[in-house]
Amino acid sequence: MKPALRSAIDQAFLQADQALAIRDPQLAWPWLERAHILTQRMPLLHTRSHWLMLLAGWQQGDYREVLGQAMRMPAALLFSRIWVPLGNSGRARISAFQPMPLSEEMRQLLD
């Protein structure tokens, strides 16, 4: 893994973890979505992003998000290396099959 990608992933998870630790899921969501996009092809890290999204949903009392993330975790473990919809934010209200546009920065990190 390229050092820039590793650093970006570490930063996203650190920021998300800190936001969740202070029970501020709104602050965590942008970092969780970033972590999700950057780790989509890495089964364990991809699953970790969904686990943290589940926790954020729980903190918000958003049970649709919790259920959606619970269903996405096994899929992340099983299918991350086979196929992922590039750029998908990972949120439960977005189709798990919908590709989404990437910023130039994200594209460069993932190349």
Rank of each mutant, 00 (worst) to 15 (best):
M1T: 12
K2I: 08
K2H: 09
P3C: 01
P3A: 06
P3Y: 00
A4Y: 01
L5S: 15
L5F: 14
R6S: 12
R6V: 07
S7A: 07
A8W: 15
A8R: 09
A8V: 09
I9Y: 03
I9H: 01
D10S: 09
D10A: 11
Q11H: 07
A12V: 00
A12E: 00
A12L: 02
A12W: 01
F13H: 13
F13Q: 07
Q15H: 14
D17I: 02
D17R: 12
L20M: 03
L20R: 08
D24F: 08
P25E: 15
P25S: 07
P25W: 11
Q26A: 08
L27A: 14
A28W: 11
W29S: 13
P30C: 02
W31V: 08
L32T: 14
R34W: 01
H36I: 02
H36N: 10
L38W: 11
Q40P: 01
Q40F: 00
P43S: 14
P43F: 09
P43D: 14
L44Y: 13
L45A: 11
L45P: 05
L45G: 15
L45Q: 08
H46R: 09
H46I: 10
H46N: 14
R48W: 07
R48D: 06
S49P: 11
S49R: 12
S49Q: 15
W51K: 03
M53N: 08
M53R: 09
L54K: 08
A56H: 10
G57K: 04
E65D: 11
V66S: 03
L67D: 05
G68L: 09
Q69I: 13
M71S: 11
R72P: 10
M73I: 14
M73T: 10
M73Y: 03
A75I: 06
A76I: 05
A76Y: 10
A76L: 06
L78F: 15
L78N: 04
L78H: 10
F79Y: 11
S80Q: 04
S80K: 03
W83G: 04
W83T: 10
L86D: 03
G87L: 00
G87F: 01
S89T: 14
G90Y: 01
G90H: 00
G90F: 02
A92H: 06
A92I: 06
S95C: 05
A96W: 08
L102M: 07
S103W: 07
E104Q: 09
E105I: 04
Q108Y: 00
L110H: 15
L110V: 07
D111Q: 04
